[in-house]
């Protein structure tokens, strides 16, 4: 009996469904690659290598998004993170004259505290996750449900493609947050130029 689900009355979907083996194997391969790359990001002594390992993690996350049928988020992840953010970080490395070879001072000498914090945090998160969602499974049909207003009786109508549904949502229900986000991006980039320029 899960504590949280019992307390909040959450109904867990798909607890009796069979596990899709091929998708799970694909997930496991990607996950192992991502975890190894993430560990290298925070342990390698070379800043440029850390940036390249970060590319592996971000590409793995994009693949996981596609596995979850969120193909638009996956493509956006590739374009924004791998295309822009990594380049920006590499520029930051070059402009701040970080040592391009191995730098023994990239991490603290006493890393034990950080490791203890990370392990305890992971233990708590893993306990809460497994205790709450023990057998919940993702539906095999991952096309999104259409808005509740259009649902008649019987089968829930599904969208043809999730990308189209995302565009409908972004330019429909989420139009105001999208515009606010545009203003935020403009303000942040103008602010970045103002902070970084020589005066």
């Amino acid at each position: 009996m899960t504590l949280l689900a019992a307390a909040n009355g959450i109904s867990l979907p798909g607890t009796d469904d069979p596990i899709n083996v091929s998708q799970t194997v694909g997930f496991a391969l990607l996950a192992a690659l991502m975890i190894w790359a993430a560990i290298r990001v925070v342990t390698t002594r070379n800043v440029v290598h850390a940036a390249v390992w970060l590319v592996v993690v971000l590409a793995g996350a994009a693949a996981q998004f596609i596995l979850l049928a969120a193909e638009f988020v996956g493509v956006t992840q590739v374009m924004v993170y791998i295309g822009a953010v990594i380049v920006l970080i590499l520029f930051g490395v070059m402009l701040t004259q970080a040592k391009l070879g191995n730098d023994p001072n990239l991490s603290r000498r006493n890393w034990y505290g950080g490791a203890v914090v990370a392990v305890v945090l992971f233990g708590l998160l893993a306990f809460a996750t497994i205790d709450t969602f023990e057998d919940a499974k993702l539906p095999e049909d991952r096309r999104m449900a259409l808005p509740a207003a259009e649902v008649g009786d019987g089968e829930v109508p599904r969208t043809e493609s999730n990308t189209g549904a995302v565009s409908d949502a972004v330019f429909g229900a989420y139009l105001l947050p999208l515009e606010v986000l545009g203003v935020l991006l403009t303000a942040a980039l103008v602010g970045a130029i103002a902070v970084a320029r020589k005066d």
């Binding site: 998708q23 799970t24 997930f27 975890i35 925070v42 996981q64 979850l68 950080g114 490791a115 998160l125």
Partner: peptide, 21 residues
């Protein structure tokens, strides 16, 4: 696929990120 496997993956990545910070 289990939901927990994605949540556990993201918990691992989160902890590694906190360690890095």
């Amino acid at each position: 696929m289990l939901l927990s496997q994605f949540l556990l993956l993201s918990a691992i990545l989160f902890s590694i990120g906190v360690y890095g910070v």
